[in-house]
């Protein structure tokens, strides 16, 4: 096994997902198959090969630091599950 059920539970916590017991089992099995498959890449010697983050050879794209029109508070909040006083509302963070 490339990955244990405990590992999968840990990754789920990192990804902010909670998995039901049966989901956890299926996920472990399927992740194991995929991780086994991608092992294939280790057949290749990549010593000295530059990693490629991007298809376009470009460095940072800079723009002038000037103010531009923005979407506005009303538009920005229109899809908020909860809002008030021009803010997004979330469950209490600090007790």
């Amino acid at each position: 096994m490339k990955i244990s059920q405990n590992d999968v539970e840990h990754v789920a916590r990192l990804a902010r997902l909670s998995l039901e017991p049966d989901e956890l089992q299926t996920m472990t099995r399927q992740m194991d198959v995929m991780l086994g498959y991608v092992e294939k890449l280790n057949e290749l010697d990549t010593t000295g090969i530059e990693p490629m983050a991007h298809a376009v050879p470009m460095s940072n794209a800079f723009r002038k630091d000037e103010s531009q029109p923005v979407i506005g508070i009303e538009r920005a909040l229109q899809n908020a599950p909860a809002s008030g006083e021009n803010c997004f509302k979330v469950p209490k963070v600090i007790e």
Binding site: N79, A80, P81, V90, P91, K92
Partner: peptide, 20 residues
Amino acid sequence: DGVRFGVRKDNGEGLIGMYQ
């Protein structure tokens, strides 16, 4: 994450619980 847009599910287990 249920904060700025989309469908939020929250059964009162705090912020992390709401995300999950």
